[in-house]
């Protein structure tokens, strides 16, 4: 139990995907303009990360490892993620239009989100078992969502600020990310 907890903290805070690992930066800067969309995106990422991690874990240990073709993981994993996202998108689209309007437009973005692919690689590299994989995926997703929410809150506030023209938009977002990164160093060594 302790181990699972420390994996969660590790993935969510200490080795935060965005600030420490540089994964998922495109959606991080692209979708953090509004808090509502940031939270929607975060939820979508958590769901996809969870599903992708489980499926990729199964495929890796049931298919790739027995046959000794672990180097095929890149192709297999991305295929799985792409299909998962597709399935999720169709499902939401057909069942709940409001949810689709809130979440759906971010789903295609997730396909090319390296955070999702990254978490599957990390799970495999760290040789996590299934429970650990699930916790690590959730931790990564929660960490991503947390930082995305903080970032969007700050950017909404910056919308009202008198930011110099040269820094407006993305550059100042980079600076925020830097300062956030420094602040998140505080979690170092906690596990």
């Amino acid at each position: 139990m302790d181990n699972l907890f420390s994996i969660f903290i590790m993935m969510a805070l200490v080795n935060n995907f965005v600030l420490a690992k540089f994964l998922g930066l495109c959606p991080f800067f692209g979708v953090s303009k509004k808090l509502s969309s940031a939270v929607s995106m975060g939820i979508a990422v958590i769901v996809v990360m969870f599903a992708a991690s489980v499926v990729s874990w199964l495929l890796f240990y049931q298919l790739l490892v027995p046959f000794g073709i672990t180097y095929m993981r890149t192709a297999i994993f991305i295929l799985v993620i792409a299909s998962l996202v597709q399935i999720l998108e169709i499902t939401i689209r057909r069942t709940n239009v409001n949810l689709y309007n809130a979440l759906g437009i971010y789903l295609p973005l997730i396909t090319t989100n390296c955070a999702v692919l990254g978490v599957t690689f990390i799970n495999v590299d760290q040789a996590f078992n299934l429970a650990e994989t699930i916790v690590s995926a959730l931790g990564a997703g929660v960490g991503f969502t947390l930082v995305l929410a903080i970032m969007s809150g700050i950017r909404e506030k910056l919308d009202l600020a008198d930011v110099p023209k040269a820094f407006k938009g993305i550059p100042v977002a980079f600076l925020v990310a830097m300062l956030l990164g420094i602040a998140f160093l505080a979690f170092g060594g906690m596990v």
Binding site: L59, L63, L64, F67, I69, M72, A75, I76, L79, V80, A82, S83, Q86, I87, I90
Partner: peptide, 14 residues
Amino acid sequence: VSLTLVGMGCGIAI
């Protein structure tokens, strides 16, 4: 074979 199988699986699921 594996790539095809996974691909087919995904296709069928979709």
